[in-house]
Amino acid sequence: MPRRRIYNPLTELLAAALLVVLVLVVNRWEFSLAVLVLVVVPAVLLSGRPRQIGLAIVLVAGPLLVSSLLLHGLFYPEGREVLLDLGVARVTAEGLAFAAGMGLRMGVFTGVLLSTAMTLDIPDLLATMTHRGWNRKLVFIVGSAVGLIPHVSLRARRISRAQQARGLVVGRGPVSRFRALLTVTTPLVIGLLVDASERTRMLEARGFSSSAPRTSYLPDTDSRGQRLARRAMVAAVGLVSVIRLAAAMAA
């Protein structure tokens, strides 16, 4: 069951982006951990779809965390405190600490952005952008691309199955893989371009290139209070960033 929406999607997206900036600015593992435990975990649990979001976070961040741990845990020439010497590779305390710090940071980024994106109401976001007077071309591209992604994946799967039914076998060699990629992407792109050509005609006929103001069919869910809150959040994070960075540069 999707959660009841309290804030406008633009406010939620901005809050997530600013939280990422704050994690970078503060740059302490304690703060990253606090954001993870106090913000990300409750946000995922209260999202209404914790399993899907949790799984997505594990799938996106998991391989990166493991490969980061292997990279910095085993190959960290700057490390002085050697815990285990394996010849070419050395496990060092500094390398493990660096991998843990970076891993925590990546975990927070993934958790914050994915839990926001996966509960985002895209039509509501696009309507807000239109109501706020954002560039209509940008609104079209964002809305169209987000709508196309699952369509492209589905079409690619169908073409792939059709080609396999016609005898496509993907071997282990790079040439075989390249040929398989070509046999799937060529009809995929041709089909998508033909669709795009039709869409161009329809959009032109409906005055897409006109710069007259657009009307959104969806109501404006944004409020004056949230607009003020967004400005305040940007100002506050900007101020904190400038102060901390000035202190870091002076030190």
């Binding site: 560039n135 709508g147 196309l148 492209v152 994946s153 690619a156 998508l192 795009a196 161009t200 897409f208």
Partner: peptide, 26 residues
């Protein structure tokens, strides 16, 4: 992006989401 978008024709704009979706999917 803010500087480029105004100069693009409709045919370019329509193919851009296609390119974005291909990038992400593949």
């Amino acid at each position: 992006v803010a500087g480029i978008l105004p100069m693009l024709s409709t045919s370019s704009l329509v193919v851009m989401p296609l390119g974005i979706a291909l990038n992400i999917a593949i």
